[in-house]
């Protein structure tokens, strides 16, 4: 499914507002942490902004939860470090992230640092689909 340009534009606007950067300089493929310098509180701010902008509620750890489910009982992490199988599933789960960034030794706490603008777009789109599905 291709991304809704209106959602992309709005997410870029919220990212730019939150970080105080020029929206024209925010590419959908920019990493929020690795390229745009967001810190963990900025990410929280972004989640709140997207909730308000799109009237959705975003819960923590959905991506991790989906991967854990797909692991079929295999270990997701060992001592906080993602297993090779988990990395493979993460690459599938986050196709918008440059594959070289999903590297060996990645810690589960670092997964959030991989998120790009497009990760947020997809997050929003998933929530909107869910909402539309529920409404009569």
């Amino acid at each position: 499914m291709s991304d809704d340009p209106q959602v992309v534009e709005r997410v870029i606007r919220e990212v730019a507002e939150s970080l105080g950067v020029d929206p024209a300089g925010v590419s959908p493929d920019a990493g929020l942490v690795l390229d745009l310098g967001a810190d963990s509180l900025d990410l929280l701010d972004l989640v709140f902004r997207l909730e308000e902008a799109f009237g959705i509620q975003i819960e923590r750890g959905q991506i991790e939860a989906r991967i854990r489910e797909a692991m079929g009982g295999d270990a997701y992490e060992i001592d906080g470090v993602l297993t090779p199988k988990a990395l493979e599933l993460l690459r599938q789960e986050l196709p918008e992230v440059r594959p070289d960034r999903i590297r060996d030794g990645l810690r589960s706490s670092e997964v959030v640092t991989l998120f790009t603008v497009r990760t947020l777009v997809r997050l929003v789109e998933r929530h909107r689909e869910g909402k539309e599905g529920q409404s009569p």
């Binding site: 507002e17 939150s18 105080g20 701010d45 709140f48």
Partner: peptide, 9 residues
């Protein structure tokens, strides 16, 4: 100034 965080709001 950067715009304030929505978290505080």
């Amino acid at each position: 100034a950067r715009r304030p965080s929505r978290v505080a709001a």
